[in-house]
């Protein structure tokens, strides 16, 4: 227990000094996607539900945050809360429809409903269509911390990430999280033990959607715009890839996966152009064929083997 506490402490210290070494906006982007992937992992890794439309929550929250801050003049903290709540609400609607089917159908339904919202955003007047919602002011946190400064914003984003990560950690290790794992392992048995499986699934879905929304709203604050790309199925695929690459059902997997993919995209974007998609596809195929536990999962298995032999 104390060893893992030391580990968390070192990680936190590293993240506190990170902006001195790395461009803060890049780290903030990684943190946003890491939070997004952690939220997604709560479903696939701990409940066994593959949502293939999770970008819709990222995108919706981005628009809500952007619109409320820019047009209604919300302060940033209120904009984030409103956006996360909106995403959770949408999660409740999409979730209640999707949990009516399971397995492969669940994935197809979430994808289809997310695509429907995508077309809605394409036509809706407040999203700016193809141009997106531009020039969202970052504003002042609690009225006196100026977020226009990248370093101030970085520590705010880090605080959001740590809070959300702690929340997910608590959820996984709570009795509620244990029931979710039971559903993942054997749904029929969970039902026969008297658990209202649908209710648990829906609650997990809403929580995941809300946290994905928090990630999307934070992203809007960082980049000062909200675009259709965030709601596109390509982004849904990316978060699946991040989680798969890092390790589904591991605590740190999504973070590692998000950091890897975002850095990779950042490095490759100007060099190979549209071949980035091909590279993402290849990583997908390799992960599924040879590497299903992901980076963190494989490292964990390796560590276990080595300590077991000793």
């Amino acid at each position: 227990m104390s060893r893992s506490a030391i580990g968390y402490g070192i990680l936190l210290a590293l993240m506190l000094v990170a902006p001195a070494v790395v461009y803060p906006v890049l780290v903030m982007k990684i943190l946003c996607f890491a939070l997004f992937a952690c939220a997604f992992n709560l479903l696939i890794g701990y409940t066994g539900l593959l949502s293939f439309g999770h970008a819709v929550f990222l995108g919706t929250a981005g628009y809500v945050a952007g619109h409320s801050i820019k047009v209604w003049g919300f302060p940033p903290e209120l904009g984030l809360i409103a956006a996360a709540l909106a995403a959770a609400g949408l999660g409740w609607v999409i979730g209640s429809l999707a949990i009516r089917r399971s397995g492969i159908y669940f994935a197809m339904i979430t994808l289809a409903l997310a695509q429907m919202m995508y077309f809605f955003f394409l036509q809706a007047p407040f999203t700016g269509g193809e141009d997106g919602l531009q020039d969202v002011p970052r504003g002042k946190l609690l009225g006196f911390i100026d977020l226009a400064d990248d370093y101030n914003l970085y520590y705010f984003v880090l605080a959001i990430f740590v809070f959300a990560f702690w929340l997910i950690h608590r959820t996984i290790h709570s009795p509620f999280g244990q029931v979710l794992k039971a559903i993942r392992e054997n749904e029929a048995r969970a039902i026969s033990l008297g658990y209202d499986v649908a209710k648990y699934k829906l609650l997990a879905f809403v929580l995941s959607a809300g946290l994905a929304g928090l990630a999307g709203a934070t992203k809007t604050l960082v980049f000062r715009f909200a675009t259709l790309t965030d709601a596109h199925w390509h982004t849904s695929g990316e978060v699946v890839l991040m989680t798969l690459l890092g390790g589904m059902g591991t605590v740190f997997g999504p973070v590692v996966g998000a950091a890897t993919i975002v850095t990779l995209q950042n490095e490759l974007a100007d060099k190979v152009g549209s071949l980035v998609t091909v590279i993402m596809g290849v990583i997908f195929v390799v992960c599924v064929l040879a590497f299903r536990r992901g980076i963190v999962g494989e490292l964990g298995a390796l560590y276990k083997r080595m300590t077991g032999r000793r």
Partner: peptide, 20 residues
């Protein structure tokens, strides 16, 4: 789910190649 994920990767590869 792994079949879905693998074929999703294949779709990305095909689409990316032709787009390039």
């Amino acid at each position: 789910l792994y079949g879905l994920l693998l074929t999703f990767g294949l779709a990305l590869i095909l689409e990316g190649l032709f787009r390039d």
